[in-house]
Design a protein around this nucleic acid. Structure first.
Length: 596
RNA sequence: GGGCGCGUAGCCUAGUCUGGAUAGGGCACCGGGUUCCUAACCCGGCGGUCGAGGGUUCAAAUCCCUCCGCGCCCGCCA
C-alpha cells in the first residue's frame, strides 16, 4: 500500500506520515498497546480534519487493552512527544490527532515545487510502456457528446498515467470494417446525380460552404440507413463492400473516405486537447494474417465447437458469463471473421508491445470485455487488458443520445454555443482587450468548461446532459479554476519578481488560509499517483477545484503585494499555487489562462 | 428472465475499494461584501430518514442479505 504513494522525495507529506507512524508505534510499546508499523500505516487517517492533519482511532484496541478507548487515546497521545515534523499531538474522544509542523511542510513543498516546476507532481520515470486505447468511435460522422465522454476520460487518464511516471501511448482503433463505414463508401462512390432521391433530399440544401469533412461525409448516413432497410439490392451492394474489405480488396476510396471523416472528428477533439499517438486500423489485422492465426488457435481451443453450417464458436460456459451468451461465434459459416475475433488479434499486438494495456469503454461494451477475456484464456493467453468502464451520457427525456431520434447533442454545436457564451462573458468584463485576444480567451474558457464538466463526474455515474449545466462558468467548473490561475498569474506579474526559485521565510506563513493552501499544494503528488492507479479521473477535477477554492479564500483574506515583511513569502506561496494549479489544469486538459 | 452499473437536500455531486469524530462541495434561493493584488470571486443563511427493510459491529452512506426504482447489455452487428 505504501509503495503506491510517492516516495519521500516526491511527496512533501511523506516525512510527516512516517514520523506519525513511528511515534504511534513507539507510544504503543510504551503504553502496552500492540501497534505495529504496517497496521498503523494502514489505519492512519491521512485526510486531515478540524482536529489535525492525521488521526488515529483507538476503539479497536480497547477490548484487548481492557481500557476505555478514550483513556487509551489520552495515554497514547501523551506518550508521543511532539517534535520534528510533528508539531502537536492531542487526544479527542477516542482519537489521537497529529498536527504537522507548518514551517517544515512549507519548506518541503516549496523546494519541491520550485525545483520541479512543470514536473511537480510527476512520479519517478519508469520504463514499461502502457497503452491507453480510447474513443475509437466509428468514423461515420461527427461526434456527439455521448462519445466525447470516452475521449475526455481516456485522455485525462492517459495524462495522469504519464505524469505518474509511466510512458503512455494513446491509441485510436479505427473501425473501417463495419457496415457503417461501408455505407459511407457505398453512397459517396456513386455520382451525386445517381443517388436515390430520398437520400439526395436528406442532404440537399443542408450542406454549408467549407463544412468539416465529418459533417459533410456523414450527412447522408441516417438517410442511407433508412433507405437500405427497404432496398435489398442496395443492401447487397453494401454487403459486397463489407466482403471486399474483409478480403483485402477494399474499394480504393474506402480508406480515404474513412480517413477524411476521421480527420474532421479529430479536429473537434483537438479543440478539447485530445490527441493520439497511434491509429490502428481494424482491417490491417486481416491484411497481415494475424486474424487467420487467431482463428487457427481458436479452432484448436479446448471449448471450440464447429456448428453444422461450418461456423466456429467457443463455449464459454465455464467462464461464468451470463446465461444465454455462453456460445460465442468467432467465425461465420462463410469463413469471415467477427469484431471480437479481430479484437483478439488487436490485443495480442498490444500485449506484444506494452506492459500495461488499458481500454476505455462505455458500459455497453461490458459484456464484450468479459467475452474477450474468456476468449484470450481459450487460446492460452495469460494476459488481460484493464478496462476503464464509464456510464453513458443520457438526455433528460431518458435514453441515450440517438442520431436518428434527433436527441444527439453534437460536440461541434456544444462548442459553438460555449464559445459564444464565453465571448459574451469575457467581452463584458474586459473592454480593454483586443478582439483576437478576446476570441482566444473565449475558446479556452469554452473548451475548458466542457472538458471539466464531463471529467468532474465519477466514470461510474450516469450523466444526464443539460445545456445549462454544460455551459456553466461558475462554481465547480473549469473557468473557476482557470480564473484562480489567472488571478495568481496577475499577482505575480504585478509583483515583478524574477522566476523561481522564489525567496521565502517559512516562519512568515502563519495565517490559517495560507497554511490550508500549503497543505493542499503538498497534496498534489499523492493525488496524481492515486488517479493513475485508481482510474478515478474525477478526483483530479475535485482536487483542482479545492485548490482554486482555497486560493480564492486566501486571496480575499490575506494581502500579498501590500503586505510588509511577509510579502516575499506570500509571493512564493502564490507562485507555488500557480505552478500546481497549472500542472493540474494540464492534466485535466483545461487550458491555462494568464489573464481572463 | 440473467449479468453489470447507479440511487446522497428542489437540482447536480464528493465520500463507498480500505467502516470511525457534527456526511464535504456546487447550482438555485435569501442577506451581505468592490477608495485595496481580476466580483467568472468572497462571507453568512436556508436545505439531508445517504432508495426501503433486515443483519454484522464498540461504530455503517461505506460490509452482508432481501426488496424497490433507473440505465445498459444478453446478434454468424460493431
Amino acid at each position: 500500500m505504501d509503495r503506491d504513494r510517492p516516495s519521500a522525495s516526491d511527496d512533501p507529506w511523506a516525512p510527516f506520515w512516517e514520523a506519525v507512524v513511528a511515534g504511534l508505534v513507539r507510544a504503543g510499546a510504551a503504553t502496552g498497546v500492540a501497534l505495529d508499523t504496517e497496521t498503523v500505516s494502514a489505519q492512519l487517517d491521512r485526510d486531515g480534519g478540524p482536529e489535525g492533519d492525521a488521526s488515529f482511532a483507538m476503539h479497536r484496541y480497547a477490548a484487548a487493552a481492557h481500557r476505555p478507548p478514550n483513556d487509551l487515546a489520552a495515554s497514547v497521545a501523551a506518550a508521543v512527544p511532539p517534535g520534528g515534523w510533528v508539531r502537536g499531538v492531542s487526544a479527542k474522544g477516542a482519537y489521537v490527532n497529529f498536527l504537522v509542523d507548518p514551517a517544515r511542510l512549507v519548506r518541503a513543498t516549496f523546494d519541491r515545487v520550485f525545483a520541479d516546476g512543470a514536473r511537480y507532481g510527476a512520479g519517478a520515470a519508469r520504463t514499461e510502456l502502457a497503452c491507453v486505447e480510447h474513443t475509437s468511435a466509428n468514423p461515420t460522422g461527427p461526434f456527439h457528446i455521448g462519445r466525447v465522454r470516452n475521449a475526455i476520460i481516456g485522455d485525462t487518464f492517459a495524462r495522469a498515467l504519464a505524469a505518474s511516471g509511466v510512458p503512455v501511448r494513446r491509441q485510436y482503433y479505427v473501425d473501417d470494417m463495419g457496415r457503417q463505414a461501408a455505407m459511407i463508401t457505398w453512397i459517396w462512390s456513386k455520382p451525386r446525380d445517381t443517388w436515390p432521391v430520398p437520400i439526395r433530399d436528406a442532404v440537399d440544401g443542408k450542406e454549408v460552404e467549407g463544412e468539416k469533412p465529418d459533417a459533410h461525409r456523414g450527412r447522408p448516413y441516417p438517410a442511407v440507413s433508412a433507405y437500405l432497410k427497404e432496398h435489398a439490392e442496395a443492401q447487397a451492394e453494401v454487403a459486397a463492400i463489407v466482403r471486399a474489405v474483409e478480403e483485402g480488396r477494399a474499394p480504393p476510396e474506402h480508406r480515404a473516405l474513412t480517413q477524411a471523416i476521421l480527420d474532421g472528428m479529430l479536429a473537434s477533439l483537438g479543440r478539447l486537447g485530445v490527441a493520439f499517438d497511434e491509429f490502428v486500423w481494424e482491417s490491417d489485422f486481416l491484411a497481415d494474417g494475424s486474424v487467420g492465426r487467431v482463428l487457427e488457435r481458436l479452432h484448436a481451443a479446448p471449448h471450440a465447437v464447429r456448428e453444422e453450417n461450418g461456423a466456429w464458436a467457443i463455449d464459454t460456459t465455464s467462464y461464468g458469463l451470463p446465461k444465454e451468451s455462453t456460445r460465442v461465434v468467432v467465425q461465420r459459416a462463410d469463413g469471415t471473421s467477427l469484431y471480437v475475433t479481430r479484437d483478439i488479434a488487436y490485443h495480442l499486438q498490444k500485449f506484444a508491445r506494452f506492459a500495461r494495456v488499458i481500454d476505455v469503454l462505455g458500459q455497453d461494451h461490458q459484456l464484450h470485455a468479459r467475452t474477450l477475456g474468456a476468449l484470450l484464456a481459450e487460446i492460452g493467453e495469460a494476459r488481460r487488458p484493464e478496462f476503464l468502464i464509464y456510464q453513458d451520457i443520457t438526455v433528460p427525456e431518458g435514453g441515450r443520445m440517438s442520431t436518428r431520434g434527433g436527441s444527439a447533442v453534437w460536440l461541434d454545436h456544444l462548442l459553438t454555443e460555449a464559445v459564444e457564451r464565453a465571448l459574451a462573458e469575457v467581452r463584458a468584463r474586459r473592454e480593454d482587450l483586443p478582439p483576437d485576444q478576446l476570441a482566444r480567451i473565449a475558446e479556452a474558457v469554452a473548451t475548458g468548461a466542457v472538458r471539466f464538466h464531463i471529467v468532474r463526474i465519477a466514470p461510474d455515474k450516469p450523466v444526464i446532459f443539460r445545456w445549462e449545466d454544460a455551459l456553466s462558468f461558475e462554481g465547480r467548473s473549469g473557468p473557476f479554476v482557470q480564473y484562480a490561475y489567472a488571478r495568481a498569474s496577475s499577482v505575480l506579474r504585478k509583483a515583478e519578481v524574477s522566476p523561481a526559485p522564489f525567496p521565502y521565510d517559512a516562519e512568515r506563513l502563519t495565517d490559517p488560509e495560507e497554511l490550508a493552501l500549503v497543505r493542499l499544494v503538498a497534496r498534489f503528488p499523492a493525488t496524481v499517483q492515486y488517479v493513475a492507479r485508481s482510474t478515478h479521473v474525477h478526483t483530479l477535477a475535485g482536487y483542482a477545484h479545492a485548490l482554486a477554492d482555497q486560493f480564492n479564500r486566501f486571496y480575499h483574506a490575506v494581502p500579498v503585494l501590500a503586505s510588509g515583511a511577509e510579502r516575499p513569502s506570500r509571493i512564493a506561496l502564490v507562485a507555488a499555487v500557480r505552478q500546481t494549479l497549472g500542472n493540474a489544469l494540464d492534466l485535466l486538459g483545461v487550458p491555462r489562462l494568464e489573464t481572463m
